[in-house]
């Protein structure tokens, strides 16, 4: 879906900003909002670029730089931490051979941290694009990654 089609779904008002940004982010395999798109969106809803950038930089689900096809976000908040989310993180880093904030050379995966995603009762948790995975163990993480790699998910 191109930018104009997305914008035309919403009235030109700042309260629809986040919905628009998520749609734009989803509309590309690179999961990001480009500088030009950001400026167009700001002008459309009648706020400054700085205000849109401020909103985008606050929410981990949004990005202003290109990311992989699958954006993995590991929860970094306390309940997940207490349930050893660092092991989850380490497994992913080892499996994909990338660090936090990086994208694999084949542009398939990006690895990021996120604030609480509301799965504290089943910590540790992570999100891949819009899908949430909980009660993570080493094996579970590996099999999830494998499913994405092989195109099953």
């Amino acid at each position: 879906m191109d930018l104009q089609t997305i914008l035309s779904k919403y009235p030109p008002q700042p309260q629809y900003l986040i919905e628009m940004l998520i749609d734009v982010d989803d509309a590309t395999e690179q999961h990001y909002v480009s500088e030009d798109e950001l400026r167009t969106i700001a002008a459309y809803v009648g706020v400054r670029d700085s205000q849109v950038y401020s909103v985008m930089s606050f929410y981990t689900m949004l990005s202003t730089t290109p990311r992989g096809k699958y954006v993995i976000q590991v929860c970094k908040d306390v309940p997940c931490y207490l349930n050893d989310d660092f092991n989850v993180l380490k497994t992913i880093q080892d499996e994909l051979a990338i660090g936090i904030g990086d994208t694999t050379p084949d542009q398939l995966f990006s690895l990021e941290l996120t604030a609480c995603i509301g799965c504290c009762d089943e910590a540790p948790a992570m999100r891949v694009n819009h899908e949430t995975y909980t009660n993570l163990s080493d094996e579970k993480v590996r099999s999830i990654l494998e499913s994405y790699r092989s195109g099953l998910l």
């Binding site: 706020v47 400054r48 700085s50 205000q51 950038y53 401020s54 930089s57 606050f58 604030a115």
Partner: peptide, 9 residues
């Protein structure tokens, strides 16, 4: 003006 804003969290 809104030149300066809070960025990140």
């Amino acid at each position: 003006m809104h030149v300066l804003e809070r960025m990140g969290r």
